[in-house]
């Protein structure tokens, strides 16, 4: 056996046993029937997939889709100007990039918890508002869709900044100058020249943000307080409280299908692959 084969062996084994096999098991579970005390039992059936079309669950899928889409749009809105500024700066570019990446490297759990600390009834924002006399009762900032959106945007913002920055950095400055020479005002240049040319970065960033948002579990659980059910929470619920493994597996498979399609789209758009 050649050296390359030996080197690939551990990764192949690990991925086969701890990624492909679990996937196959969940696929098999999704096609079985719920057992009497939870778990799974024969016979084979596609009933769990049929239940996905139940309006109750379709609503949750749709909600997750909308939440992920809105979070992605907000990330784009917030990230684009910052990425543009960083790509234009000459002296401190690396410092700025590190400032974008630093929170991403620190714990996701801690970053989500920070919003719990800020938004809760006795949290910093409500305490400040009350001591300034602006409010007399705490505003319900936590445990709603808004809090979940905020958590998602905060959590995945760096994923949007970096790809956009990467395309903006490669953008030929002469094109921007040409637009200005031909009489375009700054805003016109941004929207008619810079934004269209940075489309690859925008698409890549959007997919990178949308994918984790769609399957998010931690953020809606912690900041939504169980009231904001997204599809990730639904999966968890089916495996724990509801003890309906086949249905939980079917939802997982549906989620995987969507995520895989998005991944294929992403890899098509990316000219150079990561591996």
């Amino acid at each position: 056996m050649k050296l390359r084969e030996w080197f690939l062996l551990p990764a192949r084994a690990w991925m086969a046993v701890l990624f492909a096999a679990p996937f196959a098991i969940v696929l098999a579970y999704s096609l079985m029937t719920r057992g009497d005390i939870g778990g799974i039992a024969p016979p084979w059936t596609a009933e769990s997939y049929a239940r996905l079309i139940d309006p109750l669950y379709l609503t949750i899928l749709w909600r997750s889709f909308v939440m992920a889409a809105v979070a992605t749009a907000l990330c784009l809105l917030f990230a684009f100007p910052a990425a543009l500024f960083i790509s234009r700066s000459t002296s401190h570019r690396n410092l700025y990039l590190q400032l974008v990446m630093l929170p991403f490297w620190t714990s996701f759990l801690v970053r989500t918890y920070a919003w719990l600390f800020l938004l809760r009834d006795t949290g910093l924002i409500n305490t400040l508002l009350e001591s300034l006399g602006l409010t007399h009762a705490p505003l319900p900032l936590l445990y709603n869709d808004g809090a979940v959106l905020l958590g998602l945007v905060y959590g995945y913002l760096p994923f949007m900044v970096l790809p956009i920055y990467a395309t903006l950095e490669r953008l030929d400055p002469a094109l921007v100058e040409a637009a200005a020479d031909l009489g375009a005002r700054p805003m016109t240049t941004v929207f008619r020249v810079i934004v269209p040319l940075s489309k690859p970065g925008i698409v890549a960033g959007s997919i990178l943000v949308f994918i984790p948002c769609l399957g998010a579990y931690l953020t809606p659980d912690l900041l939504g307080g169980g009231r904001t059910v997204m599809v990730g929470n639904l999966v968890q619920n089916q495996f724990t409280t509801a003890r309906d493994w086949p249905f939980g597996s079917a939802i997982s498979m549906a989620l995987m299908l969507i995520v895989t399609l998005l991944l294929v789209l992403f890899l098509r758009k990316e000219s150079e692959s990561l591996v």
Binding site: L8, A11, R12, M15, L18, F19, A20, A21, P22, F23, I25, V26, Y29, I211, P212, L214, G215, A216, Y217, L218, G232, V235, Q236, F239, W245, G248, S249, S252, L255, M256, V259, T260, L262, L263, L267, S273, L274, V275
Partner: peptide
Amino acid sequence: GSRVLTSSLYLSLVTPEIVTGISLLAL
């Protein structure tokens, strides 16, 4: 390169954490 291995690595990266969690538990 190896298409199969590379694709499974990519897939493992985008699989929602909760799905990874329950499928490993099932395994």
